[in-house]
């Protein structure tokens, strides 16, 4: 079976006046058909830029400098803008973080949906409208026919995100890149949206890249997980492996900073310090400045090693005791 998406050694750099920002620096992962990949990391870890790279939507001064993005076997890096455009929205769709900002405030919902249909298929406005209405119904928006005539500001945040999801689903894409789509919503809506996206993806065989900083979201949703730090993948593997016995001190720290019932009363563990500036990364492991296990050996670059079957980590001092 061919994978829906294979990303190999992707590097996306931003050429700013202050220097070259290596927002994504040698990232590799694969997403199988109908599978969900959780891309986890703090703000500035490069997870969103990875998502935009897959969409071909990296704006100057940023660009993909090397690596390959193989979508159903075909490398997209270096393709023309028109080739990207014909894939975007049709085969690869995206859902954004803030539903209050993603819909154009001065255009009606039907305008924004019909244009999305007609961008990829030569159909009449009437036919496109019918498709739009069905898509709204599919994501659970009541009386879709009337809602089509509304403007975005007449919807709540959760409803707007549903509209955005409906737009993403219009062409039954093979892959959806979801960039923290539930972060801006309250918890009950978040749960509904997660459940809906999951079932829709399962029904249509759509693969998902779910970008988030929220490990609890990933735990219930993803098949595989990729933990990013400062533009690099530091740990990847199946969701159960990574969450049950994290090998990288950073993953361990992330999990420790999630409040849990089992550690009630104890102070919450946190990762000290802040994400380092991507302009002045330390030599070797980027996490060494905040890592409890760091020593002189961490100043050397190391690659990913497979410490368990299917679980890779980039660390000199991994939590191997978890394996024992």
């Amino acid at each position: 079976m061919t994978e829906t998406l294979v990303v190999e050694n992707l590097a996306t750099h931003f050429f700013t006046k202050a220097g070259v920002v290596k927002a994504v620096d040698g990232v590799s992962f694969r997403v199988g058909r109908g599978k969900v990949l959780g891309l986890v990391g703090e703000s500035g870890s490069g997870k969103s830029v990875t998502g935009f790279s897959v969409m071909g939507l990296v704006d100057p001064p940023g660009r993909i400098v090397s690596g390959a993005i193989r979508f159903k076997g075909e490398n997209l890096v270096g393709k023309s803008e028109e080739a990207w455009r014909s894939l975007r929205g049709a085969r690869i769709a995206m859902i954004f973080q803030d539903p209050m900002m993603t819909l154009n405030p001065v255009l009606r919902i039907d305008t924004q949906m019909i244009e999305a249909v007609q961008a990829h298929e030569r159909v009449s406005a009437e036919e496109a409208r019918k498709r739009a209405r069905d898509a709204l119904g599919q994501v659970g928006i009541p009386s879709p026919e009337e809602r089509l005539k509304a403007y975005p500001h007449q919807f709540s945040g959760g409803m707007r995100q549903r509209v955005a999801i409906a737009i993403a689903l219009l062409h039954k894409p093979d892959l959806i890149v979801a960039d923290e789509p539930t972060t801006a919503l309250d918890v009950t809506i978040q749960g509904q949206i997660l459940a809906e996206v999951q079932s829709l993806a399962r029904d249509t065989g759509t693969s998902l890249i779910w970008i988030t900083h929220d490990l609890s979201v990933v735990a219930g949703l993803a098949d595989d997980i990729c933990v990013m730090y400062a533009g690099k993948v530091v740990e990847q593997g199946s969701v159960d492996d990574v969450l049950d016995h994290p090998l990288h001190p950073y993953t361990n720290g992330l999990l420790g900073s999630v409040p849990s019932r089992n550690r009630r009363g104890e102070p919450l563990r946190q990762i000290p310090g802040m994400t380092p500036s991507l302009l002045s990364l330390p030599q070797g492991c980027a996490f060494q400045t905040r890592c409890p296990r760091a020593d002189a050996a961490c100043r050397h670059n190391i690659g990913m090693t497979e410490l368990r079957e299917g679980q890779f980590v980039r660390c000199v001092h991994p939590h191997q005791e978890a394996l024992a």
Partner: peptide
Amino acid sequence: DYVKFARAKGLTQRR
């Protein structure tokens, strides 16, 4: 974001 989203829908630059 709405411009990026519009591009993500596959609209032409012109539109």
